[in-house]
Protein backbone atom coordinates (compact mmCIF):
# COMPACT_ATOMS: atom_id res chain seq x y z
CA UNK A 1 0.00 0.00 0.00
CA UNK A 2 0.95 3.63 -0.18
CA UNK A 3 -0.28 7.04 0.80
CA UNK A 4 -1.55 9.17 -2.04
CA UNK A 5 -0.52 12.74 -1.35
CA UNK A 6 -1.72 15.42 -3.73
CA UNK A 7 -1.96 12.71 -6.37
CA UNK A 8 1.50 11.21 -5.87
CA UNK A 9 2.00 7.88 -4.15
CA UNK A 10 4.53 7.66 -1.34
CA UNK A 11 5.43 4.89 1.05
CA UNK A 12 4.46 5.30 4.69
CA UNK A 13 7.41 5.90 7.03
CA UNK A 14 9.08 3.03 8.82
CA UNK A 15 8.65 4.51 12.29
CA UNK A 16 4.98 4.07 13.23
CA UNK A 17 5.18 7.02 15.64
CA UNK A 18 5.54 9.51 12.80
CA UNK A 19 2.42 11.62 12.52
CA UNK A 20 1.01 12.50 9.14
CA UNK A 21 1.93 16.09 9.96
CA UNK A 22 5.59 15.34 10.58
CA UNK A 23 5.64 13.02 7.60
CA UNK A 24 4.44 15.82 5.36
CA UNK A 25 6.76 18.44 6.78
CA UNK A 26 9.97 16.65 7.68
CA UNK A 27 9.98 13.71 5.26
CA UNK A 28 8.29 15.17 2.20
CA UNK A 29 9.12 18.87 2.79
CA UNK A 30 5.49 19.78 2.24
CA UNK A 31 5.67 22.51 4.85
CA UNK A 32 2.45 24.25 3.92
CA UNK A 33 0.70 22.16 6.58
CA UNK A 34 1.45 23.87 9.89
CA UNK A 35 2.13 22.84 13.49
CA UNK A 36 0.25 24.94 15.99
CA UNK A 37 -0.16 22.67 18.96
CA UNK A 38 0.43 19.04 18.00
CA UNK A 39 -2.45 18.15 20.26
CA UNK A 40 -5.63 18.65 18.27
CA UNK A 41 -6.50 22.02 19.69
CA UNK A 42 -5.88 24.57 16.94
CA UNK A 43 -6.59 23.25 13.44
CA UNK A 44 -3.41 24.61 11.84
CA UNK A 45 -2.50 21.11 10.63
CA UNK A 46 -5.80 20.50 8.85
CA UNK A 47 -5.56 18.39 5.69
CA UNK A 48 -8.20 16.62 3.63
CA UNK A 49 -8.24 12.83 3.63
CA UNK A 50 -10.62 11.11 1.22
CA UNK A 51 -12.65 14.32 1.06
CA UNK A 52 -12.89 14.87 4.82
CA UNK A 53 -11.02 17.52 6.78
CA UNK A 54 -8.94 16.00 9.58
CA UNK A 55 -6.08 16.95 11.86
CA UNK A 56 -2.78 15.63 10.59
CA UNK A 57 -1.14 16.06 14.01
CA UNK A 58 -3.36 13.39 15.58
CA UNK A 59 -3.24 11.13 12.54
CA UNK A 60 -0.36 8.70 12.32
CA UNK A 61 1.07 8.54 8.84
CA UNK A 62 0.42 4.81 9.01
CA UNK A 63 -3.29 5.46 9.40
CA UNK A 64 -3.29 7.27 6.07
CA UNK A 65 -1.90 4.25 4.26
CA UNK A 66 -4.15 3.39 1.36
CA UNK A 67 -5.90 6.73 1.54
CA UNK A 68 -5.74 9.97 -0.39
CA UNK A 69 -4.40 13.10 1.29
CA UNK A 70 -4.77 16.64 -0.03
CA UNK A 71 -2.71 19.42 1.50
CA UNK A 72 -2.60 23.14 0.81
CA UNK A 73 0.02 22.43 -1.82
CA UNK A 74 -2.53 20.30 -3.63
CA UNK A 75 -5.19 22.99 -3.71
CA UNK A 76 -3.49 25.31 -6.15
CA UNK A 77 -2.75 23.34 -9.26
CA UNK A 78 0.34 24.49 -11.15
CA UNK A 79 0.75 27.47 -8.88
CA UNK A 80 -2.55 29.08 -9.90
CA UNK A 81 -4.48 30.16 -6.84
CA UNK A 82 -7.99 28.78 -6.48
CA UNK A 83 -10.99 31.07 -5.87
CA UNK A 84 -10.89 30.54 -2.11
CA UNK A 85 -7.21 31.47 -1.95
CA UNK A 86 -7.86 34.55 -4.03
CA UNK A 87 -10.76 35.48 -1.77
CA UNK A 88 -8.58 35.12 1.32
CA UNK A 89 -6.17 37.67 -0.17
CA UNK A 90 -8.95 39.99 -1.29
CA UNK A 91 -10.66 39.98 2.13
CA UNK A 92 -7.37 40.03 4.06
CA UNK A 93 -8.30 36.76 5.74
CA UNK A 94 -4.89 36.41 7.38
CA UNK A 95 -2.06 38.43 8.82
CA UNK A 96 0.93 36.32 9.78
CA UNK A 97 -0.29 33.58 7.45
CA UNK A 98 0.50 30.70 9.74
CA UNK A 99 -2.98 29.37 10.44
CA UNK A 100 -3.98 30.17 6.85
CA UNK A 101 -3.32 26.84 5.08
CA UNK A 102 -5.32 25.07 7.77
CA UNK A 103 -8.13 27.58 7.48
CA UNK A 104 -8.22 27.18 3.72
CA UNK A 105 -8.13 23.37 3.83
CA UNK A 106 -10.87 23.39 6.47
CA UNK A 107 -12.99 25.83 4.50
CA UNK A 108 -12.58 23.80 1.31
CA UNK A 109 -13.94 20.67 2.96
CA UNK A 110 -16.53 22.61 4.92
CA UNK A 111 -18.17 23.95 1.78
CA UNK A 112 -18.49 20.37 0.56
CA UNK A 113 -19.96 19.32 3.89
CA UNK A 114 -22.66 21.93 3.53
CA UNK A 115 -23.41 20.75 0.03
CA UNK A 116 -23.74 17.21 1.37
CA UNK A 117 -26.24 18.45 3.95
CA UNK A 118 -24.10 18.19 7.08
CA UNK A 119 -25.75 20.21 9.86
CA UNK A 120 -23.92 22.10 12.60
CA UNK A 121 -24.60 22.88 16.24
CA UNK A 122 -26.12 26.23 15.25
CA UNK A 123 -28.34 24.82 12.51
CA UNK A 124 -31.86 25.58 13.72
CA UNK A 125 -33.63 22.89 11.72
CA UNK A 126 -31.83 19.57 11.78
CA UNK A 127 -34.43 18.09 9.47
CA UNK A 128 -33.60 20.53 6.69
CA UNK A 129 -31.77 18.83 3.86
CA UNK A 130 -29.25 21.57 3.69
CA UNK A 131 -28.40 24.31 6.14
CA UNK A 132 -28.72 27.90 5.04
CA UNK A 133 -25.25 29.33 4.85
CA UNK A 134 -25.09 32.25 7.26
CA UNK A 135 -22.06 33.94 8.78
CA UNK A 136 -22.96 32.22 12.03
CA UNK A 137 -22.94 28.81 10.32
CA UNK A 138 -19.51 29.52 8.87
CA UNK A 139 -18.20 30.67 12.24
CA UNK A 140 -19.39 27.57 14.06
CA UNK A 141 -18.11 25.25 11.35
CA UNK A 142 -14.72 27.00 11.26
CA UNK A 143 -14.30 27.20 15.03
CA UNK A 144 -11.87 24.32 14.99
CA UNK A 145 -9.33 26.59 13.30
CA UNK A 146 -7.91 29.11 15.71
CA UNK A 147 -6.42 32.37 14.48
CA UNK A 148 -4.46 34.54 16.87
CA UNK A 149 -3.86 37.53 14.62
CA UNK A 150 -7.61 38.06 14.51
CA UNK A 151 -8.39 37.64 10.83
CA UNK A 152 -11.75 36.05 11.61
CA UNK A 153 -13.88 38.62 9.80
CA UNK A 154 -11.88 38.36 6.61
CA UNK A 155 -11.90 34.57 6.71
CA UNK A 156 -15.69 34.43 7.07
CA UNK A 157 -16.14 37.03 4.31
CA UNK A 158 -13.85 35.13 1.97
CA UNK A 159 -15.67 31.85 2.53
CA UNK A 160 -19.06 33.52 2.17
CA UNK A 161 -18.03 35.10 -1.10
CA UNK A 162 -16.89 31.81 -2.59
CA UNK A 163 -19.98 29.99 -1.37
CA UNK A 164 -22.22 32.67 -2.82
CA UNK A 165 -20.42 32.59 -6.17
CA UNK A 166 -20.74 28.82 -6.33
CA UNK A 167 -24.44 28.95 -5.54
CA UNK A 168 -25.02 31.55 -8.26
Amino acid sequence: MAIRINGAEVQAPGDARVSLLDFLREHLHLTGTKVGCNQGACGACTVIIDGERVLSCLTLAAQADGRSVTTIEGLSADGALNPLQVAFIEHDGFQCGYCTPGQICAATAMLQEIERGMPSYVTADLAAERATLTAQEIRERMSGNLCRCGAHNGIVEAIMQVATERAA
Binding site: G40, G43, E52, L55, A106, A109, S120, Y121, G144, N145
Partner: peptide, 10 residues
Protein backbone atom coordinates in the same frame (compact mmCIF):
# COMPACT_ATOMS: atom_id res chain seq x y z
CA UNK B 1 -22.15 18.45 16.80
CA UNK B 2 -21.49 20.28 20.07
CA UNK B 3 -18.33 18.27 20.62
CA UNK B 4 -14.81 19.27 19.64
CA UNK B 5 -14.40 20.53 16.06
CA UNK B 6 -15.51 19.37 12.64
CA UNK B 7 -12.07 17.91 11.99
CA UNK B 8 -12.10 15.90 15.20
CA UNK B 9 -15.67 14.72 14.61
CA UNK B 10 -14.56 13.48 11.19
Amino acid sequence: LAGASAQIRN
